Amino acid sequence: MEGESFSALCTPALVVDVDKVKRNAQRMIERCHKLGVQLRPHMKTHKTLECADIMTGGSRRCIVVSTLAEASFYAEHGFDDILYAYSLPFDKVERCAALSERLDLFQVLLDHPDALDQLKKRPLSGGRQWYVWLKLDCGNGRAGILHSEPEALQLAQAIAETDGVELTGVYAHCGNTYNCRGVEQIQAVAQETSNFTLQFMER
């Protein structure tokens, strides 16, 4: 399309300013570095290798996906340290196991004791262990175990005490920002979610 006008595009079409994408991604990478936190960008919107390379600074590590198809796609193209950010589907445990045994680091989300039982039934080969993030509901109401419920802490303890399973982190999603109007409301939800998550981690 180089040299042609936008009107020549067959619609619908995605038009990306690659230089702007690179600048935004680099700014986010640098900001997280200054804050001393690891950036883990989500792949679910663009689903491309090109943008994934930009968002990871070329490292091809430390990404989030929403489906196992995405996880497999990125794994097949040299990406590693992948978090499957969807509460573990029981019918997909074997596929998750295959990725866990193939990659240096493949991580799953749990939000229910029954899901932990599924991992116990499928120990990984080669002395590997399941890497698990606990999915918290911090007010979104869509998925996860409610942060304020005693069962949430009990599940975290159960994960940590299970042989062959490591509690790697806590995951929360601010989907309740979708109905916000304006930056202030969005920031308030983000702050509340951060507070709830940090309070849970302290407990």
Rank of each mutant, 00 (worst) to 15 (best):
residue 41 P to T: 03
residue 114 D to E: 10
residue 31 R to E: 14
residue 85 A to V: 07
residue 106 F to S: 00
residue 162 T to Q: 15
residue 29 I to S: 02
residue 11 T to R: 12
residue 75 A to K: 04
residue 174 C to F: 04
residue 19 D to M: 06
residue 1 M to H: 14
residue 165 V to G: 02
residue 53 D to N: 14
residue 152 A to Q: 09
residue 188 A to C: 11
residue 187 Q to I: 09
residue 1 M to T: 12
residue 165 V to R: 00
residue 142 R to F: 10
residue 58 G to V: 04
residue 76 E to S: 13
residue 29 I to G: 01
residue 39 L to V: 05
residue 129 Q to N: 14
residue 13 A to K: 06
residue 26 Q to E: 15
residue 107 Q to V: 11
residue 133 W to L: 15
residue 123 P to F: 07
residue 13 A to Y: 08
residue 174 C to L: 05
residue 145 I to A: 10
residue 100 S to V: 05
residue 175 G to R: 10
residue 155 L to I: 09
residue 27 R to F: 01
residue 23 R to A: 14
residue 138 C to W: 01
residue 28 M to T: 15
residue 21 V to Q: 03
residue 82 I to W: 00
residue 83 L to H: 11
residue 128 R to D: 04
residue 94 E to H: 06
residue 37 V to N: 03
residue 69 A to F: 08
residue 164 G to C: 08
residue 108 V to A: 04
residue 98 A to G: 02
residue 130 W to H: 12
residue 21 V to H: 03
residue 201 M to P: 01
residue 189 V to Q: 07
residue 160 A to P: 07
residue 87 S to G: 11
residue 145 I to S: 10
residue 89 P to G: 05
residue 31 R to I: 07
residue 165 V to K: 01
residue 47 K to C: 10
residue 48 T to W: 00
residue 10 C to I: 12
residue 28 M to D: 12
residue 163 D to M: 04
residue 179 N to A: 14
residue 23 R to F: 07
residue 153 L to A: 12
residue 54 I to R: 01
residue 46 H to I: 06
residue 45 T to G: 03
residue 197 T to P: 00
residue 144 G to H: 00
residue 70 E to F: 03
residue 39 L to C: 06
residue 31 R to C: 06
residue 151 E to Q: 15
residue 168 T to K: 14
residue 71 A to I: 09
residue 164 G to W: 08
residue 148 S to Y: 09
residue 115 A to E: 15
residue 70 E to H: 06
residue 90 F to M: 13
residue 202 E to T: 10
residue 43 M to W: 02
residue 115 A to F: 02
residue 180 C to A: 14
residue 24 N to L: 08
residue 108 V to D: 00
residue 203 R to W: 07
